[in-house]
Structure formats: C-alpha cells, structure tokens
C-alpha cells in the first residue's frame, strides 16, 4: 500500500505543469525515501529528474517499493481538477493498476476522488554521476524565464559565457543578434532575489533554447533557479521545491567544431 498526503494540491499541480510538456509518460518510483521520477524526452536531448522527499509530505506510507507508470498529460489533467488549496492524497495498492487522487477542500465540505489507470512502461534511466561543475549561477527564476523567452525571438540557440562576476546570454539569428548581460549582485537584501556566479573556470557553451523554454515551465515552483555548467557536459537547471524536493533538468550542449569545416 502506498499513501501520500499533501496539504496543498498546488505544488503537485505545478510539478506536473513543469514536466508534462517535456515527457509524455514516465514512471514514478515510490520508496520509503519518497517519490521520484527520471526520464529523457523522446529526442534524448534532455532529461528531467524529480524528487519529492518523504519529509515534505503530511503523511507518507510505503510498504513496498512501487513503480507507477503514468501518462503525464492524464495526471496533469486530473490534478487540475483540484483547487490550489485543496488537500490532496495519493493512494495505490501494491499490485493494483490504479493511482487514486483524492482532493478535499479546506473546510472539508467538498471531497472528490479520481482514479487513474496506470500504464505498463519500460523507461530507460541514466546513471548521473555526482560531479563538480565549473560554474554555478543562481538567479531569480522569473529573470531566467524572461531571458529564454526573449532570446527565442532572435535565434534557436543561446550561448552562455560565464566569466568572473557575470554571465552573458547571447543569441544569433537571421534577424540579428542579442546579448543579455547579468552582473553579480553587489548588495543582497533577500538571497532569493540575488544573482550569484560561482566560478572555477570560465565556460562558453551553446544550448538549444527550445528545451530551456520547456524547463522554465517550472518557474512557479521556485523563486530561484540554479544553473550549473561545465565544458562539454550537460547543463543542469534546478528548481528547489521548498521543504519537499526539487525538479532538475539536464540538457546536452551543442557540439562544436566537430564534423564541421
């Protein structure tokens, strides 16, 4: 038997919004640690990894590790039926093929229950090694969302150039060129609003904006986004869900100077 309860449905709704455009179906791994999910998008360019820790739930019970195959669109649609401040409870039987989502309004007057059929899926999961990154950038998530949105009007790719004290986001396209420069915040009132650039060595990499604009769907989950990059490895775009876990995206960089003249 698996049971998990959250006081507010909003965070689950936002989590589903953050991943359903990138992946069609995925497997939720349920263990005593909590809920987690990892999946590549169909083109194998990016990967999303979600962790919702046991401690973040109001109630969490997991008698046996489960793998729940879910159609993302369906789960998002059903969760949408909950109001943001509804209490939500997920349940699944150990050998069942249903995931039940029960919602209860804050005053307890309205309760609703949705049963979702689970799917049989085989999902390839990648082993992601722990690693140190050359650059770690923290900035307000809305700022990052705006940059990705604006640059998409110019070109397909964004070039990230990280140097001490700042970051350049630039894009090149048929209509012209754009460059957005962020300087590390001098004084900080609220850490979540600050721009910080932690740098071991300068990095200059190119990424497809299309995917970054999928990632920024997670913006409502967190005021701050953490971007980690190193030469020639996938970048990491992470959103902390306060007290509950995180949504992390990985994006393979553009490969340059190979096979080209």
């Amino acid at each position: 038997m698996f049971e998990a309860q959250l006081p507010r449905a909003q965070v689950l709704k936002q989590t589903m919004d953050a991943i359903k455009d990138l992946i069609k179906e995925a497997v939720w791994d349920v263990s005593s640690q909590g809920l987690s999910l990892q999946s590549m998008d169909s083109s194998h360019v990016s990967l999303v990894q979600v962790t919702l820790k046991t401690e973040g739930f109001e109630l969490f019970r997991c008698d046996k590790n489960l793998a729940l195959g879910v159609n993302m669109d369906t789960m998002q649609k059903l969760l949408k039926c909950a109001n943001n401040d509804d209490n939500v409870k997920l349940t699944a039987d150990d050998n069942g093929d249903l995931l039940t989502m029960a919602f209860e309004s804050p005053n307890g007057e309205v309760t609703s229950e949705y049963e979702m059929k689970l799917m049989d899926l085989d999902i390839e999961q990648l082993g992601i090694p722990e690693q140190e990154y050359s650059c770690t950038i923290k900035m307000p998530s809305k700022e990052f969302q705006g940059i990705c949105r604006d640059l998409q009007n110019i070109g397909e790719n964004v070039r990230l150039t990280v140097v001490k004290g700042g970051v350049d986001f630039s894009a090149q396209g048929d209509i012209g060129h754009a460059k957005i420069h962020l300087t590390e915040s001098a004084t900080v009132d609220d850490e979540m609003d600050a721009i910080t650039v932690d740098i071991q060595e300068p990095v200059n990499l190119n990424f497809a904006l299309r995917y970054l604009n999928f990632f920024t769907k997670a913006t409502p989950l967190s005021r701050q986004v953490t971007i980690q990059i190193s030469p020639d490895v996938p970048m990491v775009v992470g959103y902390e869900i306060e007290g509950l876990g995180h949504v992390k995206y990985f994006l393979a960089p553009k490969i340059e100077n190979e096979d080209d003249e």
Binding site: D29, G69, E124, E258, D259
Partner: peptide, 21 residues
C-alpha cells in the same frame, strides 16, 4: 544546428530500465 546537438545518452550511460509491466 540539429547535427550539432549532443545526445543525453552520449554523456550518461543507461543504468537500468524501469519496467512497470
């Protein structure tokens, strides 16, 4: 641009296949 796009599975190796069936 497409040719130059790296693939996720070139960087990280498949560690397991999660099967719900």
């Amino acid at each position: 641009g497409k040719i130059n796009q790296g693939r996720m599975d070139d960087f990280f190796k498949i560690s397991k296949v999660v099967s719900t069936s």
